[in-house]
Design a protein around this nucleic acid. Structure first.
Ligand SMILES: [Mn+2]
Ligand SMILES: [Mn+2]
Ligand SMILES: [Zn+2]
Ligand SMILES: [Zn+2]
Lengths: 137, 137
DNA sequence: AACTTTTTGCAAATGATTTGCATTTATAGA
DNA sequence: TCTATAAATGCAAATCATTTGCAAAAAGTT
């Protein structure tokens, strides 16, 4: 079921493009375009924010990157396709990825009941992380 | 399990607020703030776009309205759906509520694995509805 | 009605995202 | 390796959804 995602041949493999993908690989949570930009700068890159946006747009359209919005936020986050289910701590904002996506089992059932052709999903769970349970108890 | 959603007592029931809710009730798909604004104007209202935004913000925070983003779009949509788990058609924006939330079974497991005290969740599933499958086939 | 608090309208600001254009770079071919 | 050409980048300016400050208007209370 897993497929290696590759940049289609019509696009060129620029160093900026590679660098952006590396940031996304290293991040364990969906991040903002500006965060990517800042991490690159911090890493010594001289990249431009427009370039980050243009690449994220392209990658999103090609399905290589998932664009999403977190509750209460007004700017998009981007992540590689395997990082879209997560826990968010309401107190400190910490994010924990949920692996072993619980949705897959449910998908088939959903498909039949609603006749939808399912193309994607996002599960966001809110709660209070162990540290904050201590701190605010 | 169903609960009638009401505007909390600390808020006033202005005519603008009522009008916005009526538009949302009449719409069968999630719509943009500006669409709400324009429908109100067309209906003879002299409301201001800021007022629409402020009300939508308030209603969203109170959980009376669901704010979401459709794939490929960069502006928020708002709808009345009374639940937080839904299917969104990528083509027409139609929303179908998922009842029998699949998450509950998974919740206990999640609690133990991550030690989070879970307070809420949101499941968004994207796909193509039966009608659009026809139309775009 | 008078009073208190919230909400509105309007205009200006914000901030994320996009775009135009000149310049650079990646890639294919000679 | 050198060249041609399309694609991508940097930079600055533009867009446009959303937010905000403030004075005036409306809602809820006594
Ligand atoms: Mn875009
Ligand atoms: Mn807001
Ligand atoms: Zn926490
Ligand atoms: Zn549809």
């Amino acid at each position: 079921m897993e497929q290696k995602l590759e940049i289609p041949k019509k696009y060129r493999l620029t160093k900026q493009r590679k660098a952006i993908l590396e940031i996304l690989e290293k991040s364990d949570i969906p991040i903002h375009a500006k965060e990517i930009f800042e991490r690159l700068k911090k890493g010594g890159w001289n990249i431009n924010l427009s370039t980050v946006y243009r690449n994220l747009d392209m990658l999103t359209k090609e399905g290589l990157v998932i664009k999403s919005y977190m509750k209460g936020e007004d700017k998009a986050r981007y992540a590689l396709p395997d990082k879209k289910n997560y826990l968010v701590c309401e107190k400190c904002g910490k994010i924990v990825i949920i692996d072993n996506c619980p949705f897959d089992k449910f998908k088939e059932e959903l498909k039949e009941v609603h006749q939808f052709e399912i193309t994607g999903h996002c599960i966001e769970v809110y709660g209070i992380c162990p540290e904050c349970q201590e701190k605010f108890s």
